[in-house]
């Protein structure tokens, strides 16, 4: 009996607490930057496509909803020819972002993706690629890698010596 009264009292007290319910969609939800929502493909500081088509996100994805094909430009720079995410399958686990060695694929705080037609949940590269570096500014994978694909010459990286002169035999 006492416990019932106590419960009723507590419930009654809640009338005077701050409301958690918000009037969505008129009122927007405050979301933290690390909130895992809609996936985007970002660009590097030089506004080149960050994704190098390494397939690691696709391999990491537990529901296998990422599919892409890597290709190269005339300098040999790798980028995805197509990049498709089937959001009707995605569980927003963020494994793809974790796997990505270039910070290209990022989950952003946006969940407003509802569609009447499931087919519209299939996003292609045009739908995913944004003109921004996203959450991780400043990183350009091709400046760190050893290849010369039009971003820096061989040996031009900060942690690289100039190319070896192979005719030099001195110790």
């Amino acid at each position: 009996m006492i416990s019932i009264l106590r419960t009723m009292a507590l419930t009654f007290l809640h009338l005077f607490h701050k409301k958690e319910t918000i009037q969505y969609p008129e009122e927007k939800v405050p979301l933290r930057p690390r909130w895992r929502g809609r996936i985007v493909l970002t660009r590097d500081p030089d506004m080149g496509e960050r994704c190098v088509g390494c397939y690691l996100c696709a391999a990491a994805c537990p529901v296998d909803c990422i599919s892409l094909q890597a290709t190269e430009d005339e300098n040999g720079r790798r980028y995805p020819e197509f990049f498709r995410i089937n959001f009707s399958r995605c569980i927003f686990c963020g494994y793809c972002e974790e796997a990505c060695p270039t910070y290209a694929i990022q989950l952003i705080p946006d969940f407003e993706m509802a569609e009447y037609n499931r087919q519209n949940l299939v996003y292609e590269k045009e739908d995913l690629l944004i003109n921004s570096e996203g959450k991780y500014p400043g990183y350009n994978y091709y400046k760190m890698a050893g290849v010369a694909v039009g971003v820096k010459p061989k040996g031009g990286g900060s942690q690289e010596n100039p190319p070896v002169n192979i005719h030099r035999l001195l110790p």
Partner: peptide
């Protein structure tokens, strides 16, 4: 076993 893209590779044709 690590084959990827099963649920996306033909999703552009039919979901």
């Amino acid at each position: 076993h690590r084959f990827s893209g099963r649920t996306a590779m033909s999703a552009h044709l039919t979901i």
